[in-house]
Amino acid sequence: MLSRAALLSGQNSKVLVALCRTTASSATNNAAASAQSSAPTFQRPVRQEPGKVRHGFIPEEWFQAFYSKTGVTGPYTFAFTLSTYLLSKEIYVLEHEYYTGLSLLVMWIYGIKKLGPKLAGYLDKSVDDYEKEWNSSRVEQKEAYETQVKDEEKAQWSVEGQTLLIQAKRENVALQLEANYRERLLNAYQAVKNRLDFQVEKTNAERRIAQKNLVEYVVARVKSSITADQEKQNINKCIADLALLAKA
């Protein structure tokens, strides 16, 4: 349960991996310690490199054995003098098989020089292919594990990216909240202003209507207060004024 919780929580995956590593390494350490107590004192035989030869088949060591006594021409001098001795005493007899051998030797040398490199190339290639065939599963397995490790590291890296992303998202949300708050603040301001404007308008309108009514009332009272006599006097006055104006 604990491990599952740790896995789920993602953030602790590194800790879990580190824990696994420590346990694994301690296990290998224990194995190494137990193996060391019965460590083998021998060396396993390894496949040798081919022995060095001259002229295709004569071991290099035979030449080296001469060098300390006779110098580099020693082995050839020895071979030449020994063969002259054997031939002159007819210990080695030059019968018909010798000439057969000589012609065979020429043919062999020609064949080896002509076909040898091609055959060697073909055989080396087949040896390499054979070795590769045996190694391929191991190499491929290793590559697969390496890619898995790489993928795992990438996944961990992208998980770190997720934390950054979440942080960015949080910031984004905070910005949105801020914007929303400001918008609502503006809304509240507008609403209050509208209400106040309404009150102002209402007061103004009431005052206007009251003034109008007062003026109408005063005018009506004044009109009603004017009598017919006063009307007549007024008209007469007007006529007199007109007459005066006409005279002028």
């Binding site: 496949r47 040798q48 490199e49 081919p50 022995g51 030869v53 295709g56 088949f57 051998g101 080896i112 040898g116 060697a120 080396d124 040896v127 070795e131």
Partner: peptide, 23 residues
């Protein structure tokens, strides 16, 4: 065998050894 026949890239030397030895 280990020196001339068994190595990975053994040459023609062991065959010639057999040829000259049998000769």
């Amino acid at each position: 065998q280990h020196k001339y026949v068994q190595p990975k890239r053994a040459g023609i030397a062991p065959f010639l050894h057999i040829v000259f030895g049998s000769m």
